[in-house]
Design a protein around this nucleic acid. Structure first.
Lengths: 167, 167
DNA sequence: TTGGAATGTCAACAAAGCTGACGTATTGTG
DNA sequence: CACAATACGTCAGCTTTGTTGACATTCCAA
């Protein structure tokens, strides 16, 4: 860490506008790859990325409330509600009234929801795994470092909130 | 490169589902940061990311044709046309009939377009630069490696097509 | 008991993608 | 020359996913 500043000469060449532009474009096209496989699966089911995200985070934190999910996703409740309603109607998500606080709805995946989550995350993980394997562990460490440094405050807060839950 | 396979024991720990999940989530939240700053600027102008992308690639390859742009962006001509029309009407892009082939329209940024492009890319580059600086050159190399390995075929082809143009 | 928080719903709207169809100008080819 | 193909634009309509604003319900807590 902090190598760039200490090394002399042209060690800062990785910060040129050209290099930054390449990074920006790589990020753009990589994100397309990142979402391509789940998108294909979702298209067949008349779902979109919003459904994928909801399923992902419900799976990650079973029993989470609607408000929690709202905070993580950073969308309006109306937007999330539409997605959630479809998932509940289709029997992929179940929403249970809270016991301690009956205003809250706790969200769980049904067996069908778990099955779809697995299809989606398997597809996404397969691509990620292939990329990781091709690039090697050091590259992966750098990848994660840069990504975490790139988050804006809101996204970083959401990311941090997740860490407190699990890993 | 290819370290993972050679090293013994638990050198493949970076390929666990947990690690992959973290990478997936980091990618999701980092992309929000990646687009947050330009999005703020665009919102004031009643533009969206689609406009940003068009402006970016016209700036990158001045005189490019509509078809070229279509291929790079991977959207339909109707979708691009809507965006392009707004940009031309607002005087940010000019469209010139081709000399060799009069069916083609060659796209250029006007001075106003160049100014907006600079605002947008400055904002995006600033964040990218800060992330790069914080992570250091080795991390950046890894970042780029993983991103390039993550692209799907179509996106990789688009990315490669760009490389042939400039860097 | 009353105020506020959590949730849900209705309506309306916008951005940005899509398909399909059609028109026009231009170019290349048989 | 005639015709097919290409490049581009446009109209119409549909989808997903986001947004505001307004309002009702339920329920906890002061």
């Amino acid at each position: 860490m902090d190598t760039g500043a200490r090394e002399g000469g042209n060690a800062l060449l990785f910060l040129t506008d050209e290099q930054l532009r390449k990074g920006i474009e790589a990020m753009f096209f990589a994100y397309q790859g990142f979402t391509a496989d789940p998108d294909r699966i979702l298209a067949d089911l008349a779902y979109g990325r919003a459904h994928h995200r909801a399923i992902h985070f419900i799976n990650r934190s079973p029993g989470t409330t609607v408000n929690n999910l709202l905070a993580i996703l950073g969308v309006t409740k109306q937007s999330l509600n539409r997605v959630l309603r479809a998932l509940v109607e289709d029997g992929l998500v179940k929403s249970e009234v809270g016991q301690r606080d009956k205003r809250e709805r706790h969200l769980f995946l049904t067996d069908a929801g778990i099955a779809l989550e697995r299809r989606l995350s398997d597809a996404q993980r397969d691509r990620m795994r292939a990329a990781y394997r091709a690039a090697g562990p050091e590259a992966v460490a750098g990848f994660r470092q840069v990504l975490e440094a790139m988050m804006d405050d809101k996204s970083a807060a959401r990311y941090a909130a997740l860490k407190e839950l699990k890993g």
